[in-house]
Design a protein around this nucleic acid. Structure first.
Lengths: 240, 240
DNA sequence: GCCAATTTGTGAAAGCGTTCACGAGCTCTT
DNA sequence: AAGAGCTCGTGAACGCTTTCACAAATTGGC
């Protein structure tokens, strides 16, 4: 249902923004990290060039990305660190400390539960779950592991909006379905399976083996290049 | 130095390929996983449609990607699973079981060392390293943790080509420099820092907090959309 | 007050990746 | 052997992303 009447805009600023490009969204967290570091160091103003260097991108990208949020820079000067921090945090929605549930407390689940970066960046671990009854009650990173039976009640009471799946691949879809059924609309999947979810649910996938394989490809390419250059040299030598 | 003489091509096949697009490379591991599963299930032939479903992409992508490797499909039939498996494995260079060194055996390093996916997919963990002397000698996933002093000798003797950095952010660049200095040309970085490396060295970065923040953005967007639709509805009601 | 030096913001162009659409080639049935 | 039904391979179109280049705006020196 689209309202076709001319709605009076209270926040004319950028409330009518046509959606921030995905590529930009993926970089906002990088900028935020750099900005927080700068703020901690007492820096109050930063140029797109410096911000770019810290985030590992080009300055043109920084400017274009930040212009998507509205204009928070001053020409000839740069961007105000505090202001930009706040703006990006608000845009990412990390000001409200979202609740996260981690399912599957194996090796990886342990590591995720103990990973300081989550709590440091606006997330709260609301619950750890494992299917193995022997694990229930175990203390991991100061949190008690709960049985899967508690999943629904915890998600509801703690208002969990993000589920992290760190189970074996075979259990991942089942766990995902259960998370979605009780209202979770974002999933971070560490299992090496494709999850199918209804529309409106976002899934991001992190596969460590895939990352290594991509690196392996480039390694192979590099050594092939070295190989073919000596082959070419040999051929050249043979011809001459 | 480019040889301008007409070199006789022994492998006219695709030795002169103009480089496989990065996006394709990133998907090859997905296809490989599906293909291995299929092979294990005794399936010998697969269509682009089925392969796409398993990998979570579109069939058009699959066909375009696979056509980059050369033509290993049969029109009207599909792709031969074994053949394609082999081809992709060869392309990714995972047939030769590359050696990997993991530096930083904290929470995450532990998880990585114990992660079965590495060894299952053509990688061999050649060494675990930690700066903390108390950790040296500790047994993690059947492997002994070594002091950083051993790094250079192990990288050389085990022919390590990929380094995994799972240290705190503050140590990452230093570790990276050391890895690069002793010949490592691919780095997988889990620390939330941008690493600077010389040309010819590939770095991939996995940042768990970033993934969550991206999900958080979409969550926020979703709730904003819901919010503005009720606002619009209210405004519409007020107007009428 | 004016000029030089900076640095943002942004259209335009170029590059890359995805999707579409359909011809080419294989199999199976009749 | 001929035609129907699939499915691959691939140019063309489309859209998203990056890069380029420069006008607009600010500061600081003189």
């Amino acid at each position: 249902m689209q309202a076709s009447v001319p709605v009076h805009r209270l926040r004319a600023d950028r409330a009518d923004r046509p959606g921030i490009p995905e590529a930009t969204v993926a970089r906002l967290p990088l900028y935020l990290r750099v900005l927080i570091d700068l703020a901690d160091s007492g820096v109050t103003c930063v140029s797109s060039e410096d911000l770019a260097a810290g985030a590992g991108v080009t300055s043109a990208k920084v400017r274009k990305d930040l212009s998507q949020l509205g204009s928070y820079g001053t020409r000839g000067v740069g961007y105000e660190v505090d202001c930009l921090c706040e703006e990006i945090s608000r845009e990412l929605g990390v000001t409200q400390h979202r609740a996260v549930a981690i399912v599957g407390i194996g090796n990886l689940g342990h590591a995720l539960a103990g990973y300081g970066g989550f709590t440091a960046r606006g997330f709260r671990i609301a619950g750890l779950f494992d299917a193995d009854p022997h694990r229930s009650g175990e203390l991991v990173a100061g949190l008690r592991v709960r049985p899967m039976d508690d999943l629904e009640s915890v998600v509801a009471s703690e208002q969990v909006s993000i589920g992290v799946i760190a189970t074996p691949a075979c259990a991942a879809q089942q766990v995902c379905d259960r998370l979605v059924a009780c209202g979770v609309t974002s999933v971070l999947n560490f299992a090496s399976t494709v999850l199918s979810v209804p529309a409106g649910v976002d899934v991001r996938k992190v596969d460590l083996a895939v990352e290594l394989q991509i690196l392996s490809f480039h390694e192979t390419r590099k050594s092939r290049a070295a190989m073919s250059s000596v082959t070419a040299a040999a051929a050249t030598a043979a011809v001459s």
